[in-house]
């Protein structure tokens, strides 16, 4: 099973980024092989549709589970349509987040959060934008 975690930097020791579309990296952990792969989030630099661009990358990587903080409606619907499950987690170490998921302690995201929540500096601040 492949687990993708939105992350601030490149390895399992990084902190999880609660923004999905605008995070810096995705750390992808393969539970069967025990391998870690990191991809740069193309959505981060996208003018619009950041969550969509990020989701396309995740889908292309054949991931089964995504762990992040918040996710907008577009990305959420894409994962729903691709049978990829999304779990919510706070800002902790990526490794710990994976561990919590394995122990079944993370909550599945069943509803999308507000759009553009990850825009601007900082996390979770609402921001009018998208041009």
């Amino acid at each position: 099973m492949k687990i993708a975690v939105s992350s601030m930097s490149k390895d399992l020791n990084s902190m999880l980024d609660v923004r999905f579309g605008r995070c810096n990296y995705f750390v992808i952990y393969d539970t069967e092989e025990g391998l870690v792969k990191t991809i740069e989030n193309k959505g981060q630099m996208s003018g619009g549709g950041a969550g969509i661009a990020a989701a396309q990358q995740i889908i292309d990587e054949d991931v089964d589970v995504v762990i992040t903080g918040n996710m907008g409606l577009n990305a959420f619907n894409l994962f729903k349509n691709s049978d990829i499950k999304v779990y919510r987690c706070g800002s902790i170490k990526v490794e710990t987040a994976v561990q919590l998921f394995k122990e079944g302690k993370l909550e599945e995201l069943t509803q999308a959060g507000p759009a553009h929540a990850g825009m601007g500096m900082g996390t979770g601040r609402r921001f009018r934008g998208g041009r």
Binding site: G48, G49, I52, A55, Q56, I59, L78, N81, S82
Partner: peptide, 9 residues
Amino acid sequence: FNALVKTKK
């Protein structure tokens, strides 16, 4: 513009 996405289906 990220308007099209290829999903598995």
